[in-house]
């Protein structure tokens, strides 16, 4: 039983980080109606930004996470201006194709760029809080506790912005109907930029938070990227609460599944497969996701 709870807590912490990243992807999908296949690479960019802020400039670790998010936000806005804006100004035929190839290509470019700039070496950013905390039978790493707290705070912040502020309502309006939003005076291009920047900024924040725990390297974004795809399909593509629930679910499945689901000598080898297997199943059985809306396609 003690083992079970230890696994649940570990899964919860990982799930919160997945949630941070995936809610960014969901936000982008809900407003821009595209899947950002470079999401994992923005996560990586956030981790590197935070690492260099903390080690080269001596910025305190938690502040460096916030600055890294800001940096990734700016990169996202620029990327949107240069590469994605044409999708919404009628310059592109076959928008789905363009969006897939462009974001995928961008991901490849970012990863190779990181490899060339920073080398393949894994880097270890400074800890947020060294040591461990003992809670009854559970031993918990302080870093993971801080990370879980930060992730929760950031997500609550996001939900507040989306639900309670003017900007958030404007984003929702664009997400529901671009033309109608434009008529009431909301500039959909600005909302696109904002949504893309915010979405990748959240991924960057997740990367910056995970850095001290799983280390930083150019290829670190690939698996989390694939996992956030899994999560938004689970959660019904454009839904942020759906993405959060999906992420917590995936965290539990990975944590418990690698111990209880298979022969334990195999579990860890298959850990990364659980999520994608689930994705394949959901897409087949209920493509609209567990909490989902209908299929959305770019017009």
């Amino acid at each position: 039983m003690e083992l079970f709870w230890a696994q649940v807590v570990n899964g919860l912490i990982i799930g919160l980080l997945y949630a941070l990243m995936a809610s960014g992807l969901a936000l982008i999908f809900s407003v821009l109606k595209l899947v950002n296949f470079a999401h994992g690479q923005f996560y990586m960019a956030g981790a590197f930004a935070s690492y260099y802020l903390a080690t080269l400039l001596g910025v305190p670790p938690l502040l460096s996470v916030l600055l890294a998010m800001l940096f990734v936000f700016v990169v996202g806005v620029v990327v949107h201006l240069l590469l994605l804006q044409p999708l919404y100004t009628g310059q592109v035929e076959r928008k789905d194709e363009y969006a897939i190839l462009m974001t995928f290509g961008l991901g490849i470019l970012m990863q190779n760029l990181a490899l060339a700039l920073f080398g393949p070496w894994t880097k270890k950013p400074p800890d947020f809080a060294p040591g461990v905390t003992t809670l009854g039978p559970l031993t918990l790493d302080n870093d993971r506790l801080v990370v879980a707290g930060m992730a929760t705070a950031l997500m609550l912040g996001l939900l507040w912005v989306i639900g309670r502020t003017f900007v958030g309502r404007a984003l929702q309006a664009v997400s529901q109907d671009r033309d109608a939003a434009a008529i009431v005076g909301i500039n959909p291009h600005r909302m696109n930029r904002l949504a893309f920047g915010l979405g990748v900024g959240l991924a960057g924040g997740a990367g910056a938070l995970i850095g001290p725990i799983f280390l930083v390297s150019p290829s670190m974004g690939i698996l989390p990227g694939v996992k956030s795809f899994v999560i938004i399909v689970l959660g019904g593509m454009g839904s942020i609460p759906g993405a959060i629930l999906g992420a917590l679910l995936l965290g539990q499945i990975e944590s418990l599944g690698s111990v209880y689901l298979l022969d334990p000598t195999r579990g860890l080898a298959y850990k990364n497969a659980f999520g994608v297997l689930l994705l394949a199943l959901v897409l087949l059985v209920k493509p609209t996701g567990l909490f989902g809306q209908r299929h959305v396609r770019m017009e």
Partner: peptide, 22 residues
């Protein structure tokens, strides 16, 4: 179609890679 197909095939590739490794 579109992004769903891309997501599914990425997932498929990862599963194949993981199974062949494991």
């Amino acid at each position: 179609s579109g992004p769903y197909l891309a997501l599914f095939t990425i997932a498929f590739s990862e599963i194949v890679r993981i199974i062949l490794n494991a």
